[in-house]
Design a protein around this nucleic acid. Structure first.
Lengths: 150, 150
DNA sequence: TGCAAATATATGTACATACATTTAATGTAC
DNA sequence: GTACATTAAATGTATGTACATATATTTGCA
């Protein structure tokens, strides 16, 4: 559906304004879809992102700083997301002996298992959303998005 | 900066995955920029969006349902955003006499003034962000985003 | 050495989001 | 015209975001 119909606005100031709204709206759309996919598994989207970063490091631990550096939303509160993951026993947290200011966060077996389940789902789901684009369009989209943030 | 450098990830599973992350990241980037522009004026981004919808209706009032229908994030909580705007005297709220379930929300003079100030800022700021694209690119971006949500 | 600056994480607060539930008013079927 | 479903808005609760501040530790340098 065209963005005009989605938010029932017939006219935008110009093509740029429309693209701006469209970008935000589409991002929300994708995040909500992803969120409802994760819901049955008892984690939220930010929690999932942190788990994936931790798997990328595994079997090494990650510090909270490293998580912040790699999270999509840099200003979010990594400490509290790790709190939630720790409560679900998907990660462990212990003070690092070398530098007692930092904390070693490590994904658990349970966390790795959960991600494995979700990987399987992802592989079965290569249609819709971003997959509506051709590979060429996807490359073009990446180029334009990088340009927007320049 | 390329998305790989932004989140310090050297490899993505494929171009689609990269575009997905890039879309979410760029949307956050734009929203944060916009949020800090609004901050000195004492309103948040969702509050601003509601004000704009109300100006679009002015001098007619809008119901909360209409706000939800037109908001970028459909699942957000319009009632509570209107609470905040009412506390700042940017909108008024009164029960509708025809249908006593609904509420008439109306932007105040103070609200209209605030938007006018922000309009001026917007006009002085037609560079950077989405304006890094050419107009052709912008049309192409709109087309691709609509396709993603199909 | 001693002490200020820098760093790593955690905490506090206001606001927003996601989603379930509640309350009140209206519409509709019988 | 009463009973039940529907609709509109508000409220409750858990989580996340944005930003300021606090606490502990380490670093660096006078």
């Amino acid at each position: 559906m065209k963005i005009e119909e989605e938010i029932k606005q017939t006219a935008f100031r110009n093509e740029y304004h429309k693209a701006y709204i469209n970008l935000l709206y589409t991002s929300n759309f994708l995040q909500q879809e992803h969120g409802s996919m994760l819901k049955p598994f008892g984690i939220t989207s930010p929690q999932f992102n942190v788990l994936r970063i931790l798997r990328g490091q595994y079997p090494k631990p990650a510090t909270v700083s490293l998580l912040i550096e790699r999270m999509l939303d840099k200003t979010s509160n990594a400490s509290r997301i790790v709190d939630k993951l720790e409560a679900k026993e998907l990660v462990t947290r212990k003070q690092c002996p070398n530098d007692r200011r930092t904390v070693d966060v490590l994904i658990t077996e349970k966390g790795l298992d959960l991600l494995k389940q979700l990987d399987a789902l992802d592989n079965d789901n290569k249609s819709g959303g971003i997959y509506n684009l051709t590979e060429d369009e996807t490359r073009e989209l990446n180029r334009m998005l990088d340009k927007i943030r320049d």
